[in-house]
Amino acid sequence: MIQRIRNRLSDNTFLLFITICLFIAMYIAGIIIYRDNNFGRFQVFLNLFISNAGLIVAAVGMTMVLITGGIDISIGSVVAMTCMLLAWMMENKNIGALPAIIIVLLIGIVFGLVQGWLIAYLKIQPFIVTLAGMFFARGMTAVISSDIISIKNETFLAIANAKIYLPFGGYLNRKGTMVYPYLYPSVIIGIVVLILIYMMLKYTKFGRSIYAVGGNEQSALLMGLNVKRTKLKVYVLNGFLAALAGFVFCLNTSGGFVEQAKGFEMEAIAAAVIGGTLLTGGVGNVIGSLFGVLIKGTIETFITFQGTLSSWWTKIVIAALLCFFIILQSILVFTKHKRRKAIT
């Protein structure tokens, strides 16, 4: 029986399967442990999405980059720069919300273009290039302004605080009125990005060539794929997604400051790895990354519900999970290697 399931699931989906099981197990455990605190409410589940919408967008972009065998550690700083730019343009320069958002997204694309060119065409290690990008964006945030700017633009706040009520999953409160769970537009953006990138990776030529390039660059080249251009496109798209993640992040925080979103890139990488993306490239799935983000959110929710634990435990638990999944990956790759050897 187990063998049959094991055969049907390839190694990649097996990792995804473990992640989903882990998430469900954690969530059920949460419902049982914190049943007095209404952990089981649908709204608590939706809050996972609300507080991590930006991370979902960023993790989707990161997954794509990791599939090509690269890495992008600049996105945390790009998010901070985006938030700061948005706040600065709207508050200090009186630029409307819509133009500001468009400018910010364009800057993200340019940022991705430069990094992508250096990585794809000059063949500099992605880690070093994006390290420089990380420095640059973080520094630029401080150059724009070293103050904390909070956004008071009405259009922007209207978008940020528009509650979208769901027609189901409500509960009766003490007064006997039905309270329906709600979402913010940021979540919608996150989900739409997730679905679009999922479709792109699965069904378009570009998406398939990303996997091919990550799997084996030499073979992809011999197959006639334009490896350099594919990589460039991926980094450009990732730059755009990082800026979009910044916008979504900003919808939640409504402000910009220099130290914002520190360690965001590591959270995105951790989410992707927990979701079954192989860091050697060629294997990965954005759905897995979504679950990676949700697991991180669940740990945070546990810690808030517990009340006495400090926030640094999140870091430790995430690192422990990361460690577990990385070791699991390495074992899977190892056994696969062995199996292949046994066949030949």
Partner: peptide, 28 residues
């Protein structure tokens, strides 16, 4: 230069260094 702004200059230095070392650029 304030401590926050420092990374901008460091980033520029890094990029210049790696571009000088890049064999691909030399070929170009």
């Amino acid at each position: 230069v304030t401590a926050d702004q420092l990374p901008v200059y460091k980033a520029i230095v890094v990029i210049i260094i790696v571009m000088i070392q890049s064999t691909e650029l030399k070929r170009m």
